[in-house]
Structures are given as C-alpha cells and as structure tokens.
C-alpha cells in the first residue's frame, strides 16, 4: 500500500460521523458537503444562522519583523496593513494579527504553493493548515450566537468588516476574521471540536444549524 494517498481530516471528523454528514474529498481533504440536509441548511443561512466547517483551507503563519513585507509577496496590500486589519480577495485573505505576525488564508490545497512563494523570506513561515481549524459563522442571526459566546466587545462599529482579532470563545483561544457575510473563527486543532459543539449548544436559541461547504463554500469577500 505504499504510494497510497492518505486523506487529510478535519478536526471535527468525529462530529461528521456522529451527525451522519455527507462528505467529499477536496484537495486531499475529507470535508462535509452538507451536515444536516441541504434544504434546511440553506434556509438557516437565509433566516437564522449556520456554522460551516472550512478547516481544509490553507493557513500559513508568517512571523518576524519583516512579516508584512514577506506577506506582500502574496498580496501587495499587506504592506499597508495595520494590526487587527486584513486585506482580502474572494479566495485569499491576509490577516495582520500583530505588527510582526500575519496569517494567510488561501483555497484548499494551495498552502504548499503559498509556502513555496514565501521561500527565502526572512520571517518564520509555518504551514498551519492542519494545526488550525476553521469555522464560518454566517446568517442574519449570527450576532446572537456571538453574544452568547464571547466576552470581548465585537460590536460591528468597533470590529468592522475586515477586522482580524484574537480572543477567546467558550474558553477556546481563536483568531476571528470578519467578512461581510460571515465571522470566520480559527481555533487550534485540539480545541476545535469543543468550540464547534459549544457554538451549536448556545446557538440553539437563535436557530444555529451545522452546515457544509455546499451551503457556503469558503470565500472571504463578496468581490471588491
């Protein structure tokens, strides 16, 4: 069996099995296409809220004094980013977490290429695609989930679209990227399942449903 390609799994693979999710392979990853059923998930996305597993996207961490300059190789706008902000295209996002730490989010399977592009950077480059989970919280009532989950002030006028902050949700440390239609959470892998289950628990009041990438595929910007 040497030469066989082994599948990469999301940190919530056990939850998929428990909920009977319908999974597919994307760029070598085993990820849920839908978790409950497509119709209910789409309705929840329109009317309530959904929690979608995007753990298969690329996540590369750049750390060092010249982190912004190195990240600019991916997107030149990174050079101008102040901490706690981001620059995004539909497929890629660069988060300035601190003045010396940037995170690059990219489509599934593209992380190796990103690391390649950054070869020769003076900063430390770490491919965290497997070590970090990613959940997108979307839907018109997602704020009601957040306000049951986080003691940090995430009011939209204080943390606007494009903001990238690090905080704790349900005692799990995570980074958060705010886009126009979702709050994207990035917890460490070992905590990801706990965070996912905690969000579903408190989200039951506003009608949060787990959903798959067929309902909401990964994207960071509506375009523009």
């Amino acid at each position: 069996m040497s030469g066989a390609r082994l599948l990469k799994k999301s940190p919530i693979a056990a939850v998929y099995r428990r909920l009977g999710a319908d999974c597919v392979e994307v760029a070598g990853w085993h990820i849920a296409r839908h978790v409950v059923d497509l119709e209910r998930e789409r309705r929840a996305l329109r009317e309530a809220a959904v929690l979608v597993d995007w753990s298969h996207i690329g996540k590369v961490l750049i750390r060092g004094k010249s982190a912004a300059r190195d990240a600019a190789k991916i997107d030149s706008r990174a050079l101008q980013l102040a901490p706690l902000t981001s620059c995004r295209t539909a497929k890629t996002a660069i988060l300035a977490l601190t003045r010396d730490e940037m995170m690059v989010l990219s489509p599934p399977g593209s992380d190796a290429a990103i690391v390649q592009t950054l070869d020769g950077a003076t900063s430390s480059v770490l491919n965290q695609s497997g070590g970090t989970g990613c959940f997108a919280l979307a839907g018109p009532r997602r704020d009601e989930v957040i306000e049951r989950s986080c003691a940090t002030n995430l009011r939209r006028d204080r943390v606007p679209i494009g903001a990238a902050v690090q905080t704790t949700m349900h005692r799990v440390h995570c980074a958060l990227l705010r886009t126009a239609d979702a709050d994207i959470l990035l917890p460490a892998r070992e905590y990801a399942q706990s965070l996912y289950e905690a969000l579903l628990d408190v989200g039951s009041s506003p009608g949060l449903l787990p959903a798959g990438i067929a309902t909401l595929p990964p994207r960071f910007d509506l375009g523009g």
């Binding site: 901490p83 601190t98 003045r99 003691a151 940090t152 902050v165 905080t167 704790t168």
Partner: peptide, 10 residues
C-alpha cells in the same frame, strides 16, 4: 498594546 481593552481574565 496590540488588541486594545480586554477583560483582565484574558
């Protein structure tokens, strides 16, 4: 200095 005002428990 990076993140602004937060709960001291953080």
């Amino acid at each position: 200095p990076n993140c602004g005002r937060r709960e001291v428990e953080e």
